[in-house]
Design a protein around this nucleic acid. Sequence first.
RNA 1: CGGGGUGUAGCGCAGCCAGGUAGCGCACCUGAAUGGGGUUCAGGUGGUCGGAGGUUCGAAUCCUCUCACCCCGACCA
Length: 566
Amino acid sequence: MRLSQLFGKTQREIPAEADTISHQLMLRAGMIRQLTAGVYSYLPLALRSLHKIEDIIRDEMNKAGGQEICMPVLQPIELWEKSGRGASFGQSLFRLFDRKERELALGPTHEEVITDLVGRSVQSYRDLPLLLYQIQTKFRDEPRPRGGLVRVREFVMKDLYSFDTDAEGLDINYQKMIAAYKNIFSRCGLPVIIIEADSGAIGGKDSNEFMAVSEMGEDEIIYCESCGKAANAEKAQSLKVKADNSSPLPMEEVATPGYKTIEEVCRFLKINPVNTLKAVFYMADNEFVFVCIRGDVDVNEVKLKNMLHCVDLRMATEQEVAAEGIIAGFASPIGLKNVKIVADESVASGTNFVAGGNKNDLHIKNVNYPRDFKADIVADIALAAAGDGCTECSAKLLATRGVEVGHVFKLGTFLSEKMGAFYIDANGESKPIVMGCYGIGVGRLMAAIIDINHDDKGIIWPQNIAPYQVYVCPLFLEDTRVAEKAESLYKELENMGIEVLYDDRSESTGVKFNDADLLGIPLRITVSPRSLEKGCIEVKWRSEKKAELVPVDEAAKKIQEMLTVK
RNA sequence: CGGGGUGUAGCGCAGCCAGGUAGCGCACCUGAAUGGGGUUCAGGUGGUCGGAGGUUCGAAUCCUCUCACCCCGACCA
């Protein structure tokens, strides 16, 4: 490809809208262009890389026994009502009406469609196991798209769905997919860590995420260096510091004039947050919930939501709190009636806590659970934090951020039951198909790859997914020797089946080199009068500083060798 | 949805406070010189000033409404 003909120009200045590296580089390299919030056009360079990523994914999916299919983006809303997940996707589901006023959704994912499809096709255990996948555009009306391709509303995703007769079969396929994913990310030049995850709106039991560790990541990862355990902060468990455990004393009122927050109360009473209980108020599907948790620990809303089995969870407003007769700032679970109380396990982790007095300017000392109040539910709803102890080995946990590039779920049978996907087993009994689903965000993956593989000059493509392998860069094109040699080398390499980007522009040396660095093509070939004098051309890896002189006659062969070996 | 910010040429920005013929840099076009890391000079093309309404002799500028985009939060496979 001649650079002068390539659609998509490089830009020197960073568009103001981009503040993550991958977004900036993709815009500057002329790879993508935003149409509206979270919706992008992919220009040739980006599309070439995307296709390469897709081909790697395809290859690994096929090797694992997957069969590729294509499913509708337009999906009748009834399908979502049937699975019950329309509600959990909520506002994120793009909805539209056809001319007959029938409601449709733009598919945010394809579990419903495929379960319906497979349910109609599969009849016998002999038809299972079955692995089907698709690489397609999906739509989600995200509240806030961000980070360029990291979170968008229209995006290409690979989803594989596994169908088994039983949990053992699912386990096998689950492990098979994890192995395939490791291959995929490694072939893409992206180091990932596998962490435990919450399964969210998708539902299901076991769930793991593949995270690219990166500052631009939206997810917080809590991990243990000593034993290797790692989990999404939404899911992570941890050992909290020990609270006071002296023998329980009688409750005692204490005046705390105007001291409402945990810090204020602690400073005033000269105690530690670990020895306090705090109250947080939520509305769970319009039911008021009083959450009680130790003062030094924060509520993990994902855990809380899962525990309450609710669709919508939000903090209660001041009015809603007041309507329950609760005095914010001095709230107490003691003596509360007709309110659902959820306590974190941490409330039972010590004795003689300071809690609210449910009257203005009053707190109560020596509060003990369950002596002084009862909770409807006691569970782990605590947010794990860096510095907490690992539940496996007690070492101090660390935190980092990551981009979720892949996510695998054991769905089990809840979808197949709802959607009516059953098979007949060897005994002639009808049973629900056991499902798993395995996703990779392709565009986001490309962004993560760029984020990991760049320097201050630009992208450094891993060879496998680079849009082109070789950048032929003639200097001083007016020199006919240069022009002829560059041109012939370009054609020769192309004839050898090598993907070449040929910078045929009459730009200055600096411009060309800087664009070459920005675009990040792995191998740069410089053709110049200086090296031609010596009968050579220069070959340089994007990832390395030094160039190598190669005799002109051997150039093409040598380049081919370099590309093969690397 | 709450908070903050920004909309002026393909990109980055100034002009707005104090109303008076729309500017600068990059990019693009023409020409010349130069040229191994965004070189220089000269000339040139390109703008519904996000949109609508209002005030005014006159609005990028003041007022009202509105839309879009970005950031933080909420939310989110």
